[in-house]
Design a protein around this nucleic acid. Structure first.
Lengths: 195, 195
DNA sequence: GTCTATACCGCGATAGAC
DNA sequence: GTCTATCGCGGTATAGAC
């Protein structure tokens, strides 16, 4: 510590990551050149290689950090009822994703631009997240709170539905995030309950 | 007609489109070069330009045709009940999309690689499709069959959920398509019904 | 840590022979 | 209708000065 304070590294590194996130989300990883990224940051292209060994590692780092943030933030109290935990999950998922549209977007649009090794790592983190929801649904089904034919399908169906919010929701639009969450919770709850 | 029978045009054109579809879906539009496409087809790069003015037009053509196919195939008998029409929509959507994973994939992954003009055209077709479902939901809500807070949100939520099938379903897997459709119909029905 | 300069490669698209 | 050859450009990444 200490000695690096104030170095350009502390300023330039986050600027590069923020710019990469924004540009990858807007134009796609393959369509963003290192030159364009450097211009956005305000440095020359060569300087970027002080912060990342290559473009691929930069993308991987962004995705990996996003997934780790997601897993860290997704807490769940197993002593609560499955219904309460599901409500909590829906609320969390929509809020967390609405806060990070760029991270979410590249996290599934740019998966195919990862090397096989990097893809496998990100994929493992994604499955961990799915397992959080699957556990809730399985517990609720075992307790008789939910009526689900196949827990894995229900997990994927709910996540797809919730993540879809990101394709259209914009803060300041017709509906507040609270209103959106309320309706999605209503639909999710009913979809996994007997009826 | 007549005279063109057997010309390479009748063979090469569909081969180019099929190869482009497959490669764009697998690697992404920006990551597929015209040389790679030509190799896949079995011709030289220059020959591709006998069939498309440029790479952009090729992508647009694939997406436009897919959306037109979708709209043509999506029929709905308005004399039936909203519940029956919704069931029919769910069945149709999952089957149609499961049959065309590559078309579906590029149809929303590569939207941002369209020129603004081409994007607007494809987007308009996509909204027409959404309107088919929205009409069903609105009719059912008016008839008292459905309990939906906001019809537009419900439309987007249901479509996101159904389209999500394509991210994991593979023919010959653990579940048959009929089983998958049955569970999705169960979840969709309950999610828009009072409960 | 950033700069300038550049090596080396592959891109989309075109020209003209056959 | 396809070929070979090529133009002009822009890509990632590196070298060496400061």
């Amino acid at each position: 510590m200490a000695r690096t304070t104030g170095s350009h590294s502390d300023i330039t590194r986050p600027k590069i990551r923020a710019a990469a996130l924004r540009l990858f989300a807007r134009h796609g990883f393959a369509a963003v050149s290192m030159r364009a990224l450097a211009t956005e940051v305000g440095v020359q292209a060569g300087a970027l290689y002080n912060y990342t060994p290559d473009k691929q590692t930069l993308l991987f780092s962004l995705l990996q950090d996003h997934m780790n943030d997601l897993l860290s933030a997704c807490d769940n109290d197993p002593s609560q009822s499955a219904v309460d935990r599901l409500r909590q999950f829906v609320d969390f998922h929509i809020r967390f994703h609405a806060d990070r549209p760029d991270e979410v977007f590249i996290s599934y649009m740019e998966l195919r631009n990862l090397t096989p090794e990097n893809f496998a790592e990100v994929e493992a983190l994604r499955r961990q997240y799915e397992d959080r929801l699957e556990t809730i649904l399985r517990d609720g089904a075992a307790a008789g709170d939910f009526a689900i034919a196949d827990t894995k399908i229900a997990t994927l169906a709910v996540i797809a539905m919730l993540t879809g919010v990101n394709t259209w929701f914009r803060a300041g639009g017709r509906l507040s995030l609270d209103e959106v969450i309320a309706q999605y919770w209503d639909m999710v709850r009913k979809s996994v309950t007997a009826g």
